[in-house]
Amino acid sequence: MAAEKSSIKIITLIAADGSVFEVEPNIVKEMKTVQSYIDELDQNTVSIPLPNVFGNDLAMIIEYCKKHASEEETKEAKEEFDFEFVKRMKSDDKLRLLQAASYLNMESFLQFMAKAIAAEIENQSVEFVRDYFQIESDFTPEEEAELRKENEWAFK
């Protein structure tokens, strides 16, 4: 990895609200957006502004990365952590974290969040999903009625 080759010791991430996080290079390995930034530079320290990620969310993402980057942790401990991590999040948090994961281009965290969000809409109604994702239907009343007729089974 490029991060290992270069002499960077500490990376400073600056969130949208100005809060600052100092992390070791192995923590940001998963953040491809950050990584590509680092790869272009050849300095001992770098600070990277992340205008699309809020401090609270970044703190959570770093916590996740630390746990998963650790070689001492067992697979079970990581799974246990994942479980608690999801439990701790509110619905709104999940959507924000997903967007952050997408912006930071973090493959496995993105996968993880997609699964957590899918769990939110399991067994839910169309109305719930619209409400959760803040989407207004753009179907005409006729189209909506037609869809509902085709899917009567879904409306028990």
Binding site: L98, Q111, E122, V126, R130, S137, A154
Partner: peptide
């Protein structure tokens, strides 16, 4: 990616959202 985690019933539900 989110939808990949859904089953066929849930996919039918999200198809009616918009």
């Amino acid at each position: 990616r989110i939808f990949m985690n859904l089953n066929v019933v849930e996919l039918s539900i999200v198809s009616m959202v918009s």
